[in-house]
């Protein structure tokens, strides 16, 4: 936790910490506290007075059937994105890790989508699946399948799930590959001398040894799906049609910025904070355990 040898300047450490602490206080702690404060207050129409209302904002949010719809959409969206992007990434990583020719080239060709903004990934998918100008969007319609994600809610949700997963595969791929390369070859060689087939080796040795990486990515991907995909959804569907692609974070934006409902939006922010803190806490509990047992 601490080095044995240190410098003994008195004021310098505070000076060094000052910028970080200032930014954290002004732009992290204070706004988060504001969100909590606003979430238990109700402002009048002119924003002049506010009244302490206990958990009324939360009750209102949670009683709203629209909000529960949003929760459902978020759940479907997050689980799909996480499962899809992790599954594809694991498959590709296992193949690229096996000693095949050109593994380095495959690696380079698979990691660069990490650089794309979620919104840009969405735009690329739009060029392909737009029912009027997109190559595959038109092809679907020509084949007699009525494809228009701008009108059909389920198609819209499928579209944002695909675009969001597509972008996240490379991130998961990098971590799975690093995790696979950290597994000692000798363990796998021992298993193969014991007569385990490749498939069996994967499920009984590789996959369990990979579980810290898998768990880490699970949390990261859920957080990604919750927050960073705002750009994907904003660029592709604006949460529509109807509210079929409105996730929790999109709704915070919608209520707070577009509809200017501060109390409700703050209550939603606080709910999101609780979710993130819970996810982070779970992750740290797990990381701690891993450290203890390894």
């Amino acid at each position: 936790m601490q080095r044995r040898v240190i410098f003994d300047n008195k004021a310098l450490p505070y000076l060094l910490l000052a910028p970080q602490v200032a930014v954290t206080l002004i732009f992290f702690i204070w706004p988060a506290a504001q969100a909590v404060w606003q979430s238990v207050h109700l402002q009048d129409a002119f924003g002049l007075r506010s009244q302490f209302v206990w958990f009324e904002n939360f009750e209102a949010v949670l009683a709203d059937p629209n909000y529960l719809d949003t929760v459902r959409v978020t759940a479907v969206f997050s689980l799909s994105v996480t499962a899809l992007s992790m599954g594809v990434a694991l498959l590709l990583a296992v193949l690229a890790d096996s000693r095949i020719r050109g593994a380095g080239a495959y690696k380079t060709l698979l990691i660069w989508p990490y650089a794309l903004a979620p919104a840009v990934a969405a735009v690329l998918w739009m060029f392909i699946f737009n029912p009027e100008i997109g190559l595959l969007g038109r092809a679907l319609n020509d084949l007699g399948y009525a494809w228009d994600y701008r009108l059909n809610g389920e198609q819209a949700l499928t579209m944002v799930i695909l675009a969001a997963s597509w972008k996240q595969v490379s991130y998961n791929f990098i971590f799975f590959l690093a995790g696979l390369q950290a597994i000692p070859r000798s363990v796998l060689e021992a298993a193969s001398i014991d007569g385990a087939s490749a498939v069996r080796r994967f499920w009984t040795i590789t996959f369990p040894l990979l579980s810290p990486t898998t768990f880490f990515l699970l949390v990261v991907d859920v957080v990604y799906a919750f927050f960073e995909t705002f750009g994907t959804i904003h660029a592709l569907t604006h949460g529509g049609p109807g509210k079929s692609t409105e996730t929790l974070i999109y709704r915070v934006y919608q209520d707070g910025v577009i509809n200017n409902d501060l109390g409700g939006s703050s209550a939603q922010s606080v709910i999101l904070m609780v979710i993130v803190i819970a996810l982070t806490a779970i992750q740290f509990r797990f990381v701690e355990r891993k450290v203890h047992y390894s």
């Binding site: 992290f28 706004p31 504001q34 969100a35 501060l262 999101l272």
Partner: peptide, 23 residues
């Protein structure tokens, strides 16, 4: 200070977006 910096891990900008915007 260390913990103060540490907890910012848990507050992505999207979560505190509206109040940060106000600040």
């Amino acid at each position: 200070f260390f913990w103060m910096i540490f907890i910012t891990l848990m507050l992505p900008v999207e979560v505190r977006i509206i109040p940060t915007y106000e600040v």
